[in-house]
């Protein structure tokens, strides 16, 4: 579904991605783990052309996304809940969801909102509250909900469990599973490697802008190197 081939991305002179290759197949949950500053968020943003890849190709259903303007990408069926959540702070919860549905024709808006509110009942209680005043966890739910409003076939999630209480982390991972079972392919970036790898069909490890390892979720979980680097002491 998504094939990333030899992608290099720069911030000015700094090369953040140094030739990334990665593939996501229809229906999968694929997890990307890696240390801080490895380039995980940069990879997700590069899919949307912010920043643009300097070299390489990003093929989505055969089409090269590096030639598609950022605002058209969501119309191809890809949505992102980005790093830092990026909720529209001075818009209400409901308006944020409306923004998520911008690229649709609006014919299923009511059902889609219903679906998001069923996944996150908390958001329904807060529908007229301004995004910027939500708690961190509520903002995370809203960021995922907003991404779902575009009815994506591929969902990119950047650290959805960041800063959340363990119980809420559980819920979020359950919901990701539900979303996937509903037919959405998920590409998940996580610090919470244990949960993420357990959930994922396959995983990749990124170090310093390159992919160093890949395998099924279980293979990576059982790999002693990965246990030492990303898991030991890192989970409950």
């Amino acid at each position: 579904m998504l094939k990333i081939q030899g992608v290099h991305t720069f911030y000015g002179q700094i090369e953040a991605l140094k030739g990334v290759d990665l593939e996501i197949k229809q229906g999968e949950i694929v997890t990307l783990i890696g240390a801080n500053g490895a380039g995980k968020s940069t990879l997700l943003m590069t899919v949307f052309g912010k920043p643009k890849a300097r070299h390489g190709r990003i093929l989505y259903e055969g089409r090269d996304l590096t030639r598609v303007p950022t605002h058209e990408i969501v119309r191809l069926g890809i949505a992102q809940s980005p790093e830092g959540r990026r909720i529209f702070a001075r818009m209400t919860v409901f308006e944020n969801l409306q923004m998520g549905a911008l690229c649709t024709d609006g014919s299923t808006f009511d059902e889609d909102v219903r679906m998001v509110f069923d996944l996150f009942p908390r958001l329904e209680e807060r529908r007229t509250q301004r995004g910027g005043t939500l708690s961190g966890g509520e903002q995370q739910m809203l960021a995922i909900g907003r991404a779902l409003m575009s009815k994506p076939r591929l969902l990119l999630l950047d650290e959805p469990s960041l800063g959340l209480a363990p119980l809420v982390v559980r819920q979020i991972f359950d919901i990701i599973k539900k979303i996937n079972q509903a037919g959405v392919t998920v590409f998940l970036v996580e610090q919470n490697a244990f949960h993420a790898l357990k959930l994922a069909h396959r995983g990749y490890v990124m170090v310093n802008g390159v992919i160093t390892m890949s395998g099924t979720g279980k293979e990576l979980l059982d790999n002693p190197e990965i246990r030492a680097a990303y898991l030991e002491g890192g989970h409950a």
Partner: peptide, 11 residues
């Protein structure tokens, strides 16, 4: 409020 995010949702 956030032009990058706006572009991500299709603006």
């Amino acid at each position: 409020q956030d032009s990058t995010m706006a572009a991500l949702v299709g603006v």
